[in-house]
Design a protein around this nucleic acid. Structure first.
Lengths: 243, 243
DNA sequence: GTCTATAGAAAGATAGAC
DNA sequence: GTCTATCTTTCTATAGAC
């Protein structure tokens, strides 16, 4: 029954509304595999052969879809950050700054359910300190965007209480990101030794902020193995493609 | 004339008071080179040939002094941590818990003067999350020791003010280490974007602690290139040697 | 779109001369 | 203590058949 490529009816598939191409599905599978392996062992320690084997093809087949190893990495990172952005600036977040705190605590829980992805960011952001690293610019940009967004949100939050809190929102934004990253490093090394949720909540309390969600909101994803990706393959916002 | 071992007068050079052997000097040079290269590019991305060339010998020559690449890494890490330990628990630190805050701020400044070593720890601690990584156990142990020491110190500090502060010293210890690590990650990516000194001081203030040294204490090491090592080659306290 | 086959470079490690 | 030479493995990437 060689009923291959069953449904490519309407020609060039440009405005086709039906599901992903086989190529797109393969690329997604490759990115899933790369995500898992990079997460486990970093960038340099993982070979294209490893990724390809894990995705069910050969390394030559993989290179048909991606020009090189670095491109795979950039795509993996982009996919995850699009997911985080969707969580952080969800439509309902609108103008309520405390919605950001909600979202952040949600992300902490999501992270605790996906140690592999956490490991990926810890490892790659470490490697990326080298200006020669393929993901260097990516991470510089990433932290810039996150710091700016958090600075605005914290500034709003500090202005709200009576009396207002006197913190430097910019400093706190950097502190907060640093806290999350650093906690993850310790948590990956020894999960029982660090309570990421308690530490983050305590930090916000130390600032004088009051949280309504202090009680354990029960993470929606108690899975221990990576659920592929929370985001469907979508158009890249910041493109690093080379034709 | 098989009059070998020319000057080993007093037996096996055990209580010999004169300077380091040639071999010891070579090993120190190798560790300096490895430190610099691991700092710049991490563990996996650096080859023994790179290190050897940088130290002025061949990779075979290097392997005469170290059994393998992993051993070089462990020795590099051990040397730095012995230096930090000397700073953190200096003799004068005795029983004054605020001496620890002094020492911590000093370490922040030392770090800002040695971005290479900071990069080493950021990179290797990221890679070491993998239980297979040669430095995994080392880092687990390292964070355990640091958290315990900081927990005791913070507990003392919180009990001191009138009225005492009500923080969980264990949580704060983890937060503090996380803050330092995370700030370094951002600082390495974009040094102008993060003020490590201000962020750390602000954190201690957010806790309600008052510092006498708030004003810039002028780091004693304004150097930009690594000064080899602040600690002379000494007997390893935690030995990982294999004969 | 995926494969086999292979090129070409570089890795960690060892043997033995000097 | 350091070298040259070499072994063995593994890597990224390319060429071309199917």
């Amino acid at each position: 029954m060689s009923e291959q490529t069953p449904r490519r009816a309407s020609g060039g598939r440009k405005t086709d509304r039906k599901g992903p191409t086989k190529g797109e599905r393969t690329r997604a599978t490759i990115l899933d595999a790369a995500t898992e392996l990079f997460s486990r062992s970093g960038f340099h320690a993982v070979s294209l052969r490893d990724i390809a084997a894990h995705a069910g093809l050969t390394h030559a087949g993989l290179l048909h879809h991606f020009p090189g190893k670095e491109d795979v990495l950039i795509k993996v990172l982009g996919r995850r950050d699009r997911a985080d952005a969707a969580l952080l600036w969800a439509p309902d977040a609108g103008e309520r700054p405390e919605a950001l705190l909600d979202a952040i605590v949600r992300i902490v829980h999501r992270n605790m359910a996906t140690p592999g992805m956490v490991g990926l960011y810890v490892k790659i952001s470490g490697e990326a300190a080298d200006p020669e690293h393929p993901a260097h610019d990516y991470f510089v940009q990433r932290y810039r965007v996150l710091r700016e967004a958090l600075t605005r949100a914290f500034a709003d939050l500090f202005a709200r209480p009576d009396p207002p809190l006197h913190h430097d929102a910019g400093i706190v934004a950097g502190q907060f990101l640093a806290l999350m990253d650093g906690l993850q490093t310790q948590w990956l090394l020894e999960p029982e030794a660090v309570d990421m949720h308690a530490s983050v909540v305590a930090f916000l309390r130390q600032l004088g902020l009051t949280l309504e969600l202090s009680a354990e909101p029960a993470p929606p994803t108690p899975a221990t193995s990576e659920p592929s990706s929370p985001v469907p393959p979508a158009k890249e916002p910041h493109d690093t493609d080379r034709p």
